[in-house]
């Protein structure tokens, strides 16, 4: 199948991720949008791995997954920390680093 289709699909998903990241205010949904963008990039890596006929793209996609997992763990614990202090996960409310 023509690889361009996958490029278009990845671009659409990435754009939806951007919209979610810019529009939403819940910190958790922002994180989910970031994950969506990660996934769109992974799709692109895997499809171009197929275009070039080697596995380097798939290896890169694997590394992206690992980094995403680590990022989610730290990010979510930061959200929990902020929630404990402020009782809110709304990014509009977080205008101070402490107190």
């Amino acid at each position: 199948m023509n690889p361009n289709f996958y490029v278009v699909l990845a671009a659409v998903l990435f754009t939806i991720g951007i919209v979610g990241f810019l529009v939403r205010k819940n910190a958790l949904v922002l994180f989910m949008s970031v994950e969506l963008m990660f996934n769109a990039c992974n799709l692109l890596l895997v499809s171009f791995s197929r275009v070039h006929g080697n596995l380097d793209g798939q290896a890169a996609s694997f590394f992206v997954m690992v980094v995403a997992a680590a990022e989610v763990v730290v990010g979510l614990s930061i959200i929990i920390m902020i929630y404990r202090a402020r009782h809110s996960a709304n990014v509009d409310n977080e205008n101070l680093l402490r107190y």
Partner: peptide
């Protein structure tokens, strides 16, 4: 950078 054909990873696999 559009490409219209894919080599496929069958050989690489």
């Amino acid at each position: 950078s559009l490409v219209n054909s894919a080599v496929g990873v069958g050989d690489a696999n």
